[in-house]
Design a protein around this nucleic acid. Structure first.
Lengths: 317, 317
DNA sequence: GTCCAGAATTGTCCATGACAAAACTATGGT
DNA sequence: ACCATAGTTTTGTCATGGACAATTCTGGAC
């Protein structure tokens, strides 16, 4: 009934596809009903058996939806057309300017040179300094890796290696800063369902050199606990990170609810790819769709609260 | 329709409960049909609205099931009875012997002293050395933290902080070892659906001091990519980690399939809490239910392959 | 004590219907 | 020409109830 994979790599059942693509079983069945795709075969027991090609196309569709496409428009396109769309959507490519680093790293990934990759990242980080590394190297690299994966030039496990090594490099650099105290105190985490932690590390890497004290809870903190953590640690700022795939709706609801439950004096930041798709303004939530804006946001927080505490005559504790 | 949380912290819809408990929507509806629990109220639209008490009990049930209980037997117990069962199940408590460290760490967690925690862990790690730290400190600590959470003495966010800080400490210590080469080469990761990466780091912390070269892909590598990664990196050993909550069935299927697809000369290790619940023997898979057995397993791997290569007259590459 | 067949338990899947939120579109006012 | 608003289409999620296979349990037979 629910073998993980039936035939060596050929067929997947519906929960396997859910895991592989991030599309829920309900959605998979509904698309089949509405659009006629995917149209998996059935086993003896009448259960859906998806072929790898279908799964590949589903992944491509999901990826496009994560950056704003609607399923009905693209579901009947071929895999090639989807790739073309992805290219177009990421805007006119400015590879011409500085593709050298990206190409180097991609080559290291494709040759599975883990030590070389580690070395290259550490090297670049040292040369540029932590903040510049985050803003000018990681950001375009992430984009390049994502696109290469979309094109099929990069396998999933190569992307995994990239993420892992990048996290190691960032973590090591962050640890090199003294961390015991600092102001403001910032709580970093993601909502339940959001598994990507690289964004959190990038934010931490930008903030720590500015003299903040970051407390990271890792990924997937339930809302209720997020509230409790913010109060328990008496943080001044709560920073959430959302990857492209996170459902806008869930994020907006959660942020609104969090805003209601946190003291007004606590600032709430929401950043990451997803925030580019947010339409409504969320009162009391600072959206940071571009990670480069993080340091600016910190600066304005500082001037704002310097004024407030001057008025109130209270020392920031 | 699907607000993340409707009323400030009082009611959850079914997908919220799925996220919070790890029980699928199908299972939640089925339990309601079969056992009459949970029995959520309905909103205007006829949709289930779970109360926080129900969710708490569901979490306790899930936790007991993860260590082998069956739902039908325990679903009608009260929350108190479930806690008692959990206590009983973890065996006679031997806290009396060396609870000092555990108590210290738990106190640091409960007072939200992040810097203190970080300091305590680093301190202990330095004093004991990496391997001893993993075996004699982390393992009982993990148990203590898990039990404290079950008793309600520890909040989720406190557990998150613990995991995060422990990972930071381990990662820093592992990085202190030279890593460029070594033998055997080991690929470390988890199956899709398994999000806990602490186990991986613990294994890596045990192996690296033994002179192995570890390549970690982080968590949730799809099977197909796991296979490709093992071949691309020409590893000698693939090590998977499974937390208590991982479905045995899914693990067995995946391991069997992986075993079929990997060359016979590649050893396959499966470790973590889940492996204690495995009944059948999995041919060609080395089960390591107790992390302390890791170093022994490495040693026997070495003697085994020393003999083989002697026979074959081939140098280990 | 061990082993096996039948019974009970449990999770996953299926089909279809319904509906609300979000996105898109057209229309009328300034 | 531009913008707001109301109507329409698109899309995801939920509900119900039936089915069934895999697993675990149980009561003998050896």
């Amino acid at each position: 009934m629910h073998n993980l994979i039936e035939n060596p790599g050929l067929l997947l059942n519906i929960s396997g596809v859910e895991r592989e693509t991030g599309l829920s079983k309900d959605v998979l069945r509904m698309w089949e009903r509405r659009y006629g795709f995917p149209k998996p075969g059935r086993d003896d027991n009448g259960e859906r058996q998806y072929m790898v090609e279908e799964v590949a196309k589903l992944r491509a569709i999901k990826r496009l939806m994560d950056v704003g496409s609607r399923p009905g428009k693209i579901i009947h396109s071929s895999l090639g057309e989807l790739s073309a769309l992805a290219e177009a959507r990421t805007g006119p490519r400015r590879d011409v300017i500085a593709p050298a680093i990206e190409r180097d790293i991609l080559t290291l990934l494709q040759t599975h040179d883990a030590p070389g990759l580690q070395h290259a990242l550490a090297n670049m980080l040292m040369r540029q300094g932590l903040q510049k590394f985050v803003l000018e190297t990681i950001t375009p690299l992430n984009r390049a890796v994502g696109e290469a994966w979309m094109r099929g030039d990069l396998q999933v496990f190569e992307e995994h290696l990239y993420t892992e090594q990048m996290q190691i490099a960032l973590r090591a650099a962050i640890n090199a800063f003294p961390r015991q105290s600092g102001s403001p105190r910032v709580l970093l985490t993601t909502f339940p369902g959001e598994q990507h932690g690289l964004g959190l590390l990038m934010v931490e890497a930008l903030l720590v050199p500015e003299g903040t004290q970051c407390i990271s809870l890792g990924v997937q903190t339930p809302l209720e606990d997020l509230r409790r953590a913010a109060l328990a640690h008496k943080v001044h700022l709560v920073a959430l990170s959302f990857s492209a795939a996170f459902p806008v709706r869930q994020a907006s609801d959660g942020l609104a609810m969090l805003r209601r439950q946190l003291p007004q004096t606590m600032t709430l930041w929401a950043g990451g790819e997803m925030t580019r798709r947010v339409r409504k303004t969320l009162p009391g939530v600072v959206l940071i769709p571009d990670i480069a804006a993080t340091i600016g946001a910190l600066k304005s927080w500082r001037t704002h609260w310097a004024q407030v505490s001057q008025y109130l005559g209270t020392a920031d504790r």
